[in-house]
Amino acid sequence: MNTTQPRVAVVTGAGQGLGRAIARELAAAGHTVFGCGMKAAEDFDGVRMIACDVTDEAQVQALWDRVTAEAGRIDWWINNAGLALTGRPLAGMAADEFGRMVSVNLVGTMTACRVAIAGMGAQGSGEVWNMLGAGADGQPVPGMNGYATTKAALTFMTRALAQEAEGAAYRIGGFSPGLVMTEGFFREHARVPEDQRPAREAVVNLIGDHPETIALWIREALEAGQDNGAILTWLTAEKIAERRAEQPPRDILSAYR
């Protein structure tokens, strides 16, 4: 049973994938949860869904205003909305694809941060959490360099915003969830040539995780309380080493066949 004081949370990109799992996990633990997505969606499992394009500051402000009017405050704002278009070198991507990732992953998160920070400063409390990803450590990721570029920039922005938050009423942090088995992952996985599938799937089976696993980790971390500037990483080198030693070998993809 959750003994943490119920909080009010906003989860962007909650229409599917990891965002949906996070929203569902928080609601199941007794928190008041509002999710948003690009399009209107039905409420689910205690989560109130509101349509919002995070790249449009007026829509994000309207989301903040609507949630605070209904719930009185926002304690956790989780910037999960993101887009991963992968499997090609950066030079092989269409310009509009790279532009869309920059718009959603970076500009959208920056826009949401601006609105949430202003609102939390006014209400005197709150936490903004950004969802990081491949590239967060600054290392190139073959086949994902476009996406990783946006996440590297987002990691820098998160650290910079945390520095600005020192001594303020709000806190900034980031989650690096590793590889999560979402609709977006399987969309991009389906584009991998057949002759490259075995090698890729061996890696996925080693490092991949279910959305529910990551959502639980995030909920527990939020409830435990974190310092300003915390960047929490799920898939550590130690965890990968432990998984390599598992017998029989780890096989997460079998759950989706």
Rank of each mutant, 00 (worst) to 15 (best):
N2V: 13
T3M: 13
T4R: 11
Q5T: 15
Q5S: 14
R7D: 07
V8W: 09
A9L: 11
V10D: 05
G13Q: 03
G13N: 01
G13D: 01
G15W: 06
Q16R: 15
Q16A: 14
G19A: 06
A21Y: 08
E25F: 03
F34Y: 15
G35T: 00
G35P: 00
M38E: 13
E42V: 08
V47C: 01
V47K: 06
V54G: 08
E57A: 12
A58I: 11
T68V: 15
G72S: 01
R73W: 08
I74S: 08
W77Q: 03
I78A: 06
N80L: 08
G87M: 07
L90D: 05
A91K: 12
G92C: 09
A94L: 15
A95C: 06
E97W: 05
G99Q: 11
G99M: 09
R100E: 10
V104F: 02
L106Q: 04
V107A: 14
R114C: 02
A122Q: 13
G126C: 00
E127V: 15
A136K: 07
Q139E: 15
G146W: 10
Y147V: 00
Y147L: 06
T155A: 12
T155V: 05
M157E: 13
R159W: 11
A165V: 03
E166Y: 02
A168C: 14
A168L: 14
Y170W: 11
S176F: 10
P177Y: 09
G178I: 07
T182M: 03
F185Y: 08
E188T: 07
R200F: 15
E201Y: 10
A202T: 11
A202D: 12
V203H: 03
D209V: 13
E220I: 02
E220P: 02
E223F: 06
D227E: 15
L232H: 09
T233E: 15
I240T: 10
E242A: 15
Q247R: 14
Y256V: 08
